[in-house]
Simulated assay, not measured.
Amino acid sequence: MSAQKRRAAVLGFPIAHSLSPVLHRAAYADLGLSDWSYDLFEVDEPALAGFVEGLGSEWAGLSVTMPLKRAIIPLLDGISETAASVEAVNTVVFGADGRRHGDNTDVPGMVAALRERGIEEVESAAILGAGATASSALAALARVCTGEVVAYVRSDARAAEMREWGERLDVPVRTADWADAAEGLNAPLVIATTPAGATDALSAAVPERPATLFDVLYDPWPTSLAARWSAYGGAVVSGLDLLVHQAVLQVEQMTGRAPAPLDVMRKAGEHALAAR
């Protein structure tokens, strides 16, 4: 049992859709942390500093989602090497001395989700899209992929950003036009980082014997691409897999209790999604 009431929450804008409260509360219940609470707060960038400064000693940690993952960095006392490598923090842990430490559990969460499906190493990979999640995907591939990563993007500016991220993360990145994204579906590992609907047109181009697709979306699920991929016998890693694995790491960091109950958290997430 906890000696005192402790609080944690997820911040973002918008935030009502977040499954984080479901996952963290399920973990607290399983771990017997009856004095712990986990809430959600809709906070935009202008309000972020005031919100963080107003938190009291009962706060143990924060989950941070878009558009705050970069904006919160100047408000912290330090960040992990992983967070620095992608310039994004999704986890803040408050120390007993009040210091705020930032980390990024998206990157190891991706790696853990892949390893759960038996993906330890691939010779090459493709990334669909070049948004905020793509840099985390590249950082995860730095630990998994031994060869070239091809990023399919919609603009020259996005292409330049992806090549820059590749240099920073020491991942060989080649960029290609989004119009040729169907070619990328033949890669040993395809990571789709695009918004809902963006890859629907690609479902018709899924190869007869697809390898592994990691689609970071979880609602709506399955995406057209994931459904076709599964129908053809390919392995599919979902956004819920990512969400659960990164949340497991957050729970462990915030509560100091390990291991966090992965299966319990996943079932809670699946139940919540089914009820939507």
Rank of each mutant, 00 (worst) to 15 (best):
residue 9 A to M: 09
residue 9 A to E: 06
residue 15 I to M: 05
residue 20 S to L: 13
residue 24 H to E: 12
residue 25 R to T: 06
residue 31 L to I: 00
residue 32 G to V: 07
residue 35 D to L: 15
residue 37 S to V: 14
residue 38 Y to M: 08
residue 42 E to K: 10
residue 46 P to H: 11
residue 46 P to W: 14
residue 50 G to F: 04
residue 51 F to M: 13
residue 52 V to D: 03
residue 54 G to T: 06
residue 57 S to K: 14
residue 59 W to N: 13
residue 59 W to P: 13
residue 61 G to K: 10
residue 61 G to S: 13
residue 62 L to Q: 10
residue 65 T to Y: 08
residue 65 T to I: 00
residue 67 P to N: 11
residue 69 K to A: 04
residue 70 R to H: 15
residue 74 P to C: 09
residue 74 P to Y: 04
residue 75 L to N: 13
residue 76 L to I: 12
residue 76 L to G: 11
residue 77 D to F: 06
residue 77 D to G: 09
residue 77 D to P: 12
residue 78 G to C: 10
residue 79 I to K: 07
residue 81 E to A: 14
residue 84 A to G: 07
residue 86 V to W: 09
residue 87 E to K: 14
residue 88 A to T: 06
residue 88 A to P: 03
residue 89 V to S: 01
residue 89 V to K: 02
residue 93 V to N: 08
residue 93 V to A: 15
residue 93 V to D: 07
residue 99 R to S: 15
residue 100 R to H: 08
residue 102 G to V: 07
residue 108 P to M: 11
residue 108 P to I: 08
residue 110 M to Y: 10
residue 119 I to E: 02
residue 119 I to R: 06
residue 124 S to D: 07
residue 125 A to N: 08
residue 127 I to T: 07
residue 132 A to I: 09
residue 133 T to M: 14
residue 133 T to R: 01
residue 136 S to W: 11
residue 137 A to C: 02
residue 140 A to C: 01
residue 141 L to H: 02
residue 142 A to S: 08
residue 142 A to F: 00
residue 146 T to A: 12
residue 150 V to S: 03
residue 155 S to H: 04
residue 155 S to A: 11
residue 156 D to A: 14
residue 159 A to S: 10
residue 160 A to I: 00
residue 161 E to D: 15
residue 161 E to C: 12
residue 163 R to H: 03
residue 163 R to I: 04
residue 163 R to E: 01
residue 164 E to A: 15
residue 165 W to V: 03
residue 165 W to K: 13
residue 167 E to A: 15
residue 169 L to A: 10
residue 170 D to S: 14
residue 171 V to S: 01
residue 172 P to W: 05
residue 173 V to S: 12
residue 180 D to A: 15
residue 184 G to A: 11
residue 184 G to H: 12
residue 186 N to Q: 14
residue 194 T to D: 04
residue 195 P to C: 03
residue 197 G to I: 11
residue 197 G to V: 00
residue 201 A to N: 10
residue 204 A to F: 06
residue 214 F to S: 00
residue 218 Y to E: 01
residue 218 Y to W: 04
residue 219 D to H: 11
residue 219 D to I: 00
residue 221 W to I: 00
residue 231 A to S: 14
residue 232 Y to E: 15
residue 233 G to K: 03
residue 234 G to A: 01
residue 234 G to W: 12
residue 237 V to A: 12
residue 238 S to Y: 13
residue 239 G to E: 06
residue 240 L to K: 10
residue 240 L to M: 12
residue 241 D to P: 09
residue 245 H to G: 02
residue 246 Q to W: 03
residue 248 V to H: 13
residue 250 Q to S: 13
residue 254 M to P: 11
residue 254 M to W: 14
residue 254 M to L: 05
residue 260 A to C: 10
residue 263 D to H: 14
residue 267 K to T: 15
residue 269 G to E: 04
residue 271 H to N: 15
residue 271 H to F: 01
residue 271 H to R: 15
residue 274 A to C: 04
